[in-house]
Amino acid sequence: MNLSVGILTFNSEKRIERVLESVKNFADEIVVVDSGSRDSTLDVLKRYNVKLFERKFDNFVNQKNFLLSKCSCDWVLFLDDDEVVSEELSKNIQKLKSEGTEFSGFFVNRLTNYLGRWIRHAWYPDWQLRLAKREKCKWMGNGVHETLKVKGKVGYLKGDLLHYSYDSLSQHLRKIDLYTTLYAEGAYKRGKRFSTFKLITSPVGSFLRRYFLKRGFLDGFEGFIVSVMASYYSFLKYLKLWEIEKLESSRRS
């Protein structure tokens, strides 16, 4: 089987080279869709002879389906610009390429590095469906939470996908601000409406799930931060939905 590696980039100069190095031993082609990087990302990409395309970002579903359409191999491994294939996962992908498989897709387990610490509880295990037959898969979902749908049987590959997420709290907060805005706008368009009950209970549930049920307390203070941020994300997305409803109501009156 031959394999495309598909990657989305945007101002990724500090991260992308490590990603490219981790896949060069098994990728038959590397396809990158850039969203208008203003740093030296494109210069780095050109050194690796990737197939480079540019597309203005609208949402993750459309962006990733565009990426899929530009891949030409039988299989595609989808990566973000901060995800590195571990040595163990790389070996298992190479083994899969040589032996073939009855499956149409595979989950990989993502291990996240947050503020310099590997989060082995609050965000782990984190199985992501990322490897699939090109003609058997499609990205679906809303503007924030996209999901790869695969027709056929799916399996699980051993070896972690190393996710180097946030270097600073400010970076994490900016991402939360972006994602909650996308969520609220998409939810309103789909007819979802604000609920005070969810505004109160969802943040509490998010914290309890991360910190206690998934044992985030074993991840040290970083685990506590992760759990608080999850709660804040949940609170903010419903609060922004309330704000949109209020603005729309004032426009109609």
Rank of each mutant, 00 (worst) to 15 (best):
42 L>C: 03
199 L>G: 10
248 E>K: 01
41 T>H: 10
133 K>V: 00
22 S>C: 10
119 I>H: 01
159 G>E: 07
228 V>M: 13
97 K>F: 05
230 A>T: 06
7 I>D: 04
118 W>K: 15
1 M>C: 00
39 D>C: 09
33 V>W: 06
137 C>K: 02
150 V>F: 00
91 K>N: 15
40 S>W: 01
39 D>S: 11
208 L>W: 03
35 S>Y: 13
21 E>F: 15
104 S>R: 01
14 K>F: 08
89 L>S: 03
129 L>N: 02
159 G>T: 07
250 S>Q: 07
189 K>C: 07
77 L>M: 04
73 C>T: 00
24 K>T: 15
70 K>Q: 14
75 W>N: 01
91 K>E: 15
183 Y>I: 04
129 L>F: 02
44 V>L: 05
231 S>F: 02
52 L>Q: 06
117 R>S: 14
82 D>C: 08
31 V>K: 02
153 K>Q: 04
126 D>I: 05
164 Y>G: 04
188 Y>S: 05
154 V>A: 03
237 K>C: 14
111 L>P: 04
203 P>A: 07
124 Y>K: 06
237 K>D: 13
45 L>P: 03
53 F>A: 00
46 K>P: 07
106 F>K: 08
93 I>R: 03
232 Y>V: 14
77 L>D: 06
34 D>P: 08
137 C>Y: 02
156 Y>G: 02
233 Y>M: 07
200 I>A: 15
238 Y>S: 10
128 Q>K: 15
44 V>H: 06
160 D>V: 07
185 E>Y: 01
146 E>L: 08
